[in-house]
């Protein structure tokens, strides 16, 4: 049990198909507590399906998923997980604070509203209606809703898509800060340069985890200078 608790999440041999479309073809990975793990892969490679498996929203055809020591799906463990969807899924006709309070309430933790607002720099906009916010602010509000219940594991599905460079940098600083505070983060992305800020990376393509390791390890493995080349090199020759 102690060995399992070292890992925030353990995915073992997960297979999932949607009809004839194979989304995951035997993926295994472990998230260590307090690390920032980057799930790197092109669109349609299975990143979102893997995240949804971690949440228990998708039932694998084969294999198992354990999160925070519990076999998924398990509703009780969900209050310890934060999840930020690809698009800023918020109620557009509610204010930032009303959204935040709602997501805090359904997770049973309404104590840290202002803290969450401050963390994403929205403490001066709590009463703005979400529909009137810019895209960047909406992303930040969405992040606040994902962390307001202080999750131990945070799953972020392409959080920086459509975000300007300044905000992207700021977001990554915050991810780092959370990891330093003991939160485990899984961040999916198809942008190579920002992946360099992860402690460990998993390269996923066609529903398979092709390689895993630190940025340096991956570059070394592929024998190239740049992460992008490493990704292309390591995924080359993989059959469909």
């Amino acid at each position: 049990m102690a060995a399992q608790e070292d890992h925030a999440a353990e995915v073992t041999g997960v297979v999932k198909s949607f009809g004839r479309q194979a989304a995951l073809q035997g993926v295994s990975l472990r998230l260590r507590r307090g690390e920032v793990y980057g799930l790197l892969g092109p669109n349609g490679s299975g990143k979102t399906t893997l995240i949804r498996c971690l949440l228990g929203l998708v039932k694998p055809d084969a294999g198992s998923v354990r999160v925070l020591g519990r076999l998924m799906p398990d509703l009780n463990v969900l209050s310890r997980i934060g999840y930020m969807t690809q698009t800023a899924a918020l109620y557009p006709d509610l204010t930032v604070l009303e959204n935040l309070r709602f997501f805090a309430a359904i997770n049973g933790a309404e104590a840290h509203l202002t803290e969450a607002l401050r963390f994403v720099d929205l403490e001066d906009r709590p009463d703005s209606v979400v529909a009137t916010l810019s895209g960047g602010m909406r992303t930040r509000a969405s992040l606040a809703c994902a962390i307001v219940h202080r999750p131990e594991l945070l799953l972020l599905d392409e959080p920086t898509v459509g975000v300007d460079p300044q905000l992207r940098r700021r977001l990554w600083d915050q991810f780092r800060e959370m990891a330093d505070g003991g939160t485990t983060l899984l961040i999916s992305s198809h942008v190579m340069d920002e992946a360099e800020r992860c402690q460990r990376l998993g390269l996923i393509r066609f529903g398979r985890l092709l390689a895993e390791g630190t940025v340096e390890e991956l570059k070394e493995q592929a024998g190239v200078e740049k992460l992008e080349d490493a990704f292309l090199q390591l995924s080359a020759g993989e059959p469909r």
């Binding site: 949440l55 509703l75 997980i81 899924a89």
Partner: peptide, 14 residues
């Protein structure tokens, strides 16, 4: 359609 149902399903809500 606005994706909030996905969020609800990923919460402890039954």
């Amino acid at each position: 359609s606005q994706g909030t149902l996905e969020r609800l399903m990923a919460s402890p809500l039954r």
